[in-house]
Nucleic acid binder design. Structure first.
Lengths: 269, 269
DNA sequence: CGTATATTTGATATACATCAAAACGCGTGG
DNA sequence: CCACGCGTTTTGATGTATATCAAATATACG
């Protein structure tokens, strides 16, 4: 059940500049990805500054594992990954999903060892960067340092959003928001957002969202019934999302206090 | 209900080295705080390297607010603070608690604006550091850069732990773990951990843990009934925690699969 | 193809939320 | 000092969203 690291890090697959995302997708640069740097730019500068080790991974491969000595940060050039933590008493929790442009391994900096597993859910390409080398490069390259800090900052913000969802949203809204966030992430990573493939089981999604697999299944069925998503003819893991805003609207509609319709007070004047 | 920033940043209160925590407490250096740097060391090097602006705050004061232009990171020298996010549709969520040695404002780096409110829950002293100045200082001071990255890294790890608790623990265990974590944090910040004062209402605790105030109240009552905590004679917000391990043990006991006592398989040999 | 795994859907159980009311703590002002 | 009012906390009664249990399809895989 637990593949260990298949092969040691290969030498740089090729010294070429950042490769395109694997998925053949309409590369739609709808507005700049971030105010600062696009993913392609980031990958480019990293490639130039620290010549990362590139590694191809397949579904099930571990990028790093809990307790393993920290030495590298990782950037994802392609693929789809999950971050899993395991508590001392055996609880397992998917605490994050990662794709092209995302960083892995920040949690290892403070403790000197990774505090979670990073697992590929699909074939992809990971770039490994020795943390020490990166620091050296950052000293002479303020722009690179900014990129690093922005990545950490974004991760902190994103994790807060996750906590907020889990704490405040009912099941259906949580699933809807999950899909919207995933679609948006796919879009900013250069993949299409209207036709997405969940590469996770209902159980994994449920674990990530703090729900059971049955609840996730039911929520997806309701989303489909309300036409805010559609199942692909093939497989229940491929979804069509006609309209992201409709997803949000549906999530909102889950949250109306249901009853006790308190008289709408129209402020006169 | 919402105090705005009371006074602008004062000039450095005094150029002295890091002051001791306000709470008069037995300063017990039970084993080094972190493998790398103690809080006192960190505050010391920061004080020396970037001479932060010191500001005294009182309960209700904001350190920074959502949407405000990002310019400073903050380090807490004393006090107790909460991090609150507000969603576009009005949901409010306590996403973090901070005390001496913790940093605030990392979320602002990527977006150029803070993504949350940071609110003092009692009097304290906050140090403000211009992010740009800090970066400059870090360029020439690898140790300082390490301190910064460790703080961000720790925050990422800690947030994951929070998500894990909310997603996997039943209410009583969640409250127990909350108390244990809080006590540990107080200890590493130099305060006593056996006699703690929750400076939050049941509603705030519940919000932070994804529970209602009633559920928190009941959980605390059960913890008291089981003697793993005790209420101070004065007020229900001051707790006595005789034994941290007992708290964990109680949390564990909440999680037994309800019985359906599956035969305990004793692995022979 | 046949077996294992994932998904859906229904019936039921339950942990927690919601609603409600009383007791407590605390500041304010007489 | 006591009386009053308001916010917090506790505790009980009840409701409900979601978990759990279960069984019938699907889907993937060798």
């Amino acid at each position: 059940m637990s593949n260990t690291i298949a092969a040691p890090w290969a030498a740089p697959i090729s010294p070429r500049a950042p490769s395109a995302p694997t998925a053949s997708a309409p590369y739609c640069p709808t507005r700049g990805h971030r105010e600062g740097h696009s993913i392609a730019e980031i990958l480019g500068s990293l490639s130039a500054a620290v010549s990362p080790q590139r590694r191809l991974v397949r579904a099930g491969d571990f990028i790093h594992q809990t307790g393993q000595h920290f030495e590298h940060l990782y950037i994802l050039n392609s693929g789809f990954f999950k971050i899993v933590t395991l508590s001392p008493d055996g609880r397992e929790q998917v605490v994050g999903l990662k794709l092209r442009g995302d960083w892995l391994g920040f949690d290892g900096i403070a403790q000197g060892a990774y505090a979670c597993d990073a697992v590929a859910m699909d074939t992809g390409e990971v770039w490994a960067i020795r943390y020490e080398s990166l620091l050296v490069a950052c000293i002479g390259n303020r722009r690179l340092l900014a990129v690093l800090h922005e990545a950490m900052s974004r991760q902190i913000s994103h994790q807060r959003d996750s906590l907020m969802s889990v704490c405040t949203l009912p099941a259906d809204a949580r699933v809807a928001e999950f899909l919207r966030t995933l679609a948006e992430s796919l879009a900013t990573s250069g993949q299409r957002a209207d036709e997405i493939s969940l590469r996770m089981t209902r159980a994994e999604i449920g674990n990530y969202l703090g729900l059971t697999l049955e609840t996730v299944s039911r929520a997806l069925s309701r989303l489909a019934k309300h036409k805010v998503i559609g199942f692909a003819p093939t497989g229940r893991r491929d979804l069509h999302i006609p309209n992201l805003d409709a997803l949000s609207a549906f999530a909102q509609s889950c949250m109306v206090p249901t009853r006790k319709l308190q008289p709408i007070v129209v402020k006169s004047d």
